[in-house]
């Protein structure tokens, strides 16, 4: 990603001002997942495990292609296979790569009480710092996508990092690198949005998917992982992708108005007793008067 350091400052033998000087591109990153070209090969799952150093997990069989029911603390990336029937398209086999959405307004970060356990980088990546995690799992409650997963042994929570370590070194995330069909793309949010919209236009024009659209939910301020869906009106079909995800209302309420009410109450309580001490002071007992009964 070009950033300000790589802006052109001067050009040799160039007449007039430097073209594009002082213009800097957004450096926020985005992963685009085109569900219409995913073949469910799981190369991204394997690449994720390889890069992050986890072993493949035991699989389960439930009469479908689904290898395991959910992501796990050591399995951050899972293809969800969904068999969906509709009149328009008959039987469809919808596959969706499920992982952290890297929300612009992350519910996990909002809910977290531990200093420094969750950070959001300027490029949009939301990352967990396990050394600061206290294991309270408030993030699980705050996330509308059911992403953070708890390791009961270490009492720490884990999730997809969008390969912040690779991205920081100028590489694309491991899953992107492994994808054989080109259904995964990585770049600036602007470019990925543009690419996604062009793909949607193509689907509208050349296929019968007239409900195709981009999934970049506004309720969480947009996400840094976006989908192209054949049917953007019913994202639930893709294995529980919420239609209008938002930070749970009670989490926002408890983290803001309730906290401030409590804080004001505490300050008034302490100020109140101090004021009482200054105004009335301690009780004194008149020794002679008492002790008569």
């Amino acid at each position: 990603m070009p950033n300000e350091a790589m802006q052109v400052k001067a050009i040799s033998a160039h007449p007039g001002p430097v073209p594009g000087g002082n213009v800097s591109r957004d450096y926020d990153v985005c992963k685009l997942i085109d569900t219409t070209t995913c073949i469910g090969c799981k190369a991204c799952e394997v690449a994720c495990l390889e890069w992050n150093g986890y072993e493949f997990r035991e699989t389960t069989f439930d009469n479908t292609y689904q290898t395991m029911p959910d992501t796990a603390w050591n399995y951050w990336n899972l293809i969800r296979f969904n068999e969906v029937e509709s009149e328009e398209h008959g039987l469809q086999w919808l596959m969706r790569k499920d992982q952290c959405m890297h929300c612009a307004e992350p519910g996990c970060l909002e809910a977290c009480p531990a200093d420094g356990a969750i950070v959001q980088y300027k490029n949009g990546i939301v990352d967990f710092n396990q050394e600061n995690c206290i294991g309270c799992q408030y993030c699980v409650t705050g996330c509308p996508f059911n992403i953070p997963k708890f390791n009961p042994e270490t009492k720490k929570v884990f999730k997809c990092t969008l390969c912040s370590d690779r991205v920081g070194a100028g590489l694309e995330p491991a899953c992107i690198k492994a994808c054989p069909t080109g259904c995964l793309h990585f770049g600036s949010k602007e470019d990925m949005k543009d690419l996604a919209e062009r793909r949607v236009a193509q689907l509208h024009k050349e296929t019968s998917y007239n409900k195709a659209g981009v999934y970049d939910p506004e309720g969480v301020g947009g996400t840094h992982v976006i989908y192209v869906l054949h049917d953007a009106e019913n994202p639930e079909k893709y294995g529980g992708l919420p239609k209008n995800p938002r930070i749970p209302l009670m989490v926002s309420f408890w983290k803001h108005p309730l906290k401030w009410l409590g804080n004001v109450g505490l300050v008034f309580g302490i100020a109140g007793v101090l004021l009482h001490y200054v105004r009335f002071g301690p009780k004194v007992i008149d020794k002679k008067e008492e002790k008569k009964p």
Binding site: C136, Q137, Y138, V140, T141, N146, F150, P152, P248, L249, M250, V251, F253, W254, L258, G262
Partner: peptide, 21 residues
């Protein structure tokens, strides 16, 4: 919270403020 089924997780968003209050 890990024992709380996901579809009941919203209960925690009420229980935590009650605890704090």
């Amino acid at each position: 919270p890990e024992l709380m089924p996901r579809n009941l997780h919203w209960l925690l968003t009420i229980i935590i403020p009650i605890h704090a209050a």
